[in-house]
């Protein structure tokens, strides 16, 4: 394995969990998220010699987001699964409750709102960069972000209360 390959493997191991999780936050689908992250890493590796000295993680993130945004226009694929995420680690009650709350709260948002929320508050990108990566205006980022947060505020407490009631 060459030096470049070794660096890529190190990069991919470090970045893959975040990429998969970001894709999951944007899609709500574990299989789709893994596919999207894999695609992003394939394209990143294909360009590795050119980007490894720059912002490889940013490059992979942009590929991931472009891929998912492109996917919004395609028919939805459904994957059969035997895994029920909320039951996967049932002994960690807090994490289960948090994941359930997060799933419910993100599920109330449109794909674009989810993407903006993930880029702004998971990747902590400034509004201008979110706008560039989603090919929309900064004004759209501001207004959509504001609308999404309003939905979160209105959805959040009720969902949280339900979580408490379920315990």
């Amino acid at each position: 394995m060459g030096r470049g390959d070794a660096e890529f493997v190190e990069f991919a191991r470090a970045a893959s969990a975040r990429l998969v999780h970001a894709a999951f936050l944007m899609t709500g689908d574990h299989h789709q998220a893994e596919d999207a992250a894999q695609t992003a890493l394939v394209r990143t590796y294909a360009s590795w010699s050119r980007i490894r000295d720059d912002d490889a993680y940013g490059y992979a993130r942009r590929i991931l987001v472009n891929h998912l945004v492109d996917g919004w226009r395609r028919p939805i694929r459904e994957y059969p699964t035997e895994e029920v995420p909320e039951q996967r680690r049932g002994d960690v009650a807090d994490e289960v409750a948090t994941r359930r709350w997060l799933t419910a709260i993100l599920g109330a948002l449109s794909p674009r709102e989810r993407a903006i929320i993930v880029l702004r508050y998971y990747f902590d990108l400034p509004e201008a960069q979110v706008a560039r990566e989603l090919a929309i205006s900064v004004g759209t980022v501001k207004s959509t972000s504001s609308r999404a947060l309003e939905k979160l505020r209105s959805t959040g407490p009720r969902t949280a209360d339900n979580q408490e009631a379920c315990r």
Partner: peptide, 26 residues
């Protein structure tokens, strides 16, 4: 709370097939 939730629900890596990534990337 949203920021916190997005971070604590991150799972360790492992689902990515790195060999397939590098093969397809080549």
């Amino acid at each position: 709370r949203l920021r916190h939730a997005m971070r604590v629900t991150e799972r360790p890596g492992g689902a990515i097939d790195l060999a397939a990534v590098m093969r397809d990337g080549r």
